[in-house]
Each structure stands twice: as structure tokens, then as C-alpha cells.
Simulated assay, not measured.
Amino acid sequence: MRTRMKIYSCLLAFVLGCNVTAEIQQKIIREKASISLRCPHSVEGKVTWSREINGNKVDIITADPDGDIRHNDPGRRYSSLADKSLHISRAAVSDTGRYFCNNELAMELTVIPSGHKVPPTMTTTPKTTTTTPPPPPTTRRTTPPPLPAPSTPLVNTAAPYLWQTSVHAVIVILSLIIMISITVITWRKARQKQKRHTTETENDL
């Protein structure tokens, strides 16, 4: 019984961890702006911030009570705040990517070049735009309405969230299958043990 409770507790903690992962924050900022990235949970002691580069995690800075330890910061643009948040000054387009706090995914950052319009993210309320119809023609000649000005394409930020939600659902289903399999195996072993005990008792009699 104790072993079964430990297994259920581990599976529950795993599922809850996946649920937190599915709620990753996404942020879009302009080049040369500053931003602070916070850990998903409250942390104490040393905190190591890393980012994903070419599919690999690379440590950036370690926030230590005695002072910051820089690992990969030639421009000295990264620093830590009092709550162990990562502060990025003069953000560059190359800073785009996923950032991790103690190997836990904290935020997905997108840095766009200066002069480009920042598209709305999932956490902001999109503004409603209205178009004014062209005035009626004043002469007999019919002129086509003016073409709308080209707009900056919006970044689709909903796709990663839907993908993460699908992954979470698959993980939950696999966890349930594992729990059922463990329960069946445990029940079978208990039945076999009970049969052996009954046979030994009959033989003794």
C-alpha cells in the first residue's frame, strides 16, 4: 500500500509539473529595450539562468547572494535583481529564444528589430481597428478606392500554446495508463502471493 501511494504521488507531481509548463509566458519587445524575466516559482539561494541556443541550454548568469557569476555574457548585458529575476538591458534580436530558471522554462522572448511594429501578444487585449469608407466620387469618372497601407504581419503566438496543451493532454493520458498498469500488476502479485500461502498451509495440514 505504501509503495502504491508513493507511485501515485510521483505521478501526480509529474502531471502538475506538466501543467505549469503549459502556461509559459510569451513576451515580445522591441530591440534595445530592457526587460526582466521572473522565475515561475519563488526561489532561494543560488539561481542559474540559461537560454536555449541551437537546441542546447547555455548558462548565462548565476544569481548568488555574494554576487552575480557570469558564464556567457561578453557584453555584460545580463544581471540579476533582488528577487533573482533576470534583467536584460539593450535587448538584441539575437536574444530571441527560451529562457530557463534553474532548468525550468520561464519565458519565451521575441525581440523584433527597431522600426517594426510590436504585434499584440496573448496577454494583451487586441485593439479594434475601423476603416473609413472612401468618399463618394465628385465626378462622373469612377475611381477605385485607395489600397490600404501594408501592415506588419502579426506573429501567431497561439500555436505554441495549443501545441503545449496537446502535449499536456498526451502526458496525462500516458500517466493514467501507467497508473492502471501498476495497479493491475500489484493486484496480480498479491493474488499469486495469496495462492502460494494457501497452498503452503494446505501442505502443512
Rank of each mutant, 00 (worst) to 15 (best):
A22L: 06
T131E: 12
L81R: 14
A159F: 07
I185V: 13
K6H: 13
I35K: 02
T201K: 09
T198R: 10
T21I: 05
Y161P: 00
K195A: 09
T96E: 12
P133T: 07
Y99H: 04
I182D: 09
P74F: 09
R188E: 10
I53H: 12
I171P: 05
F14L: 11
P65N: 03
G67P: 01
V118L: 05
T121E: 09
D64Q: 13
L174M: 11
P145A: 02
T121Y: 08
T201D: 11
A106P: 01
I177A: 05
L174R: 10
W187Q: 13
E23K: 10
T130G: 06
S166R: 10
H197P: 04
V167S: 04
H197I: 13
T132D: 03
D204Q: 15
M122E: 13
T3W: 11
Q192M: 09
I173G: 11
Q25S: 06
I177S: 11
V43T: 11
E202P: 01
I173E: 14
L11W: 02
T165E: 03
L174K: 10
L174N: 12
V43A: 06
L109R: 01
N103W: 01
A169W: 09
N54F: 09
T183Y: 07
T129V: 09
L162G: 05
K27I: 10
I112W: 02
T124A: 04
V111K: 05
I185E: 11
E200M: 14
T125G: 00
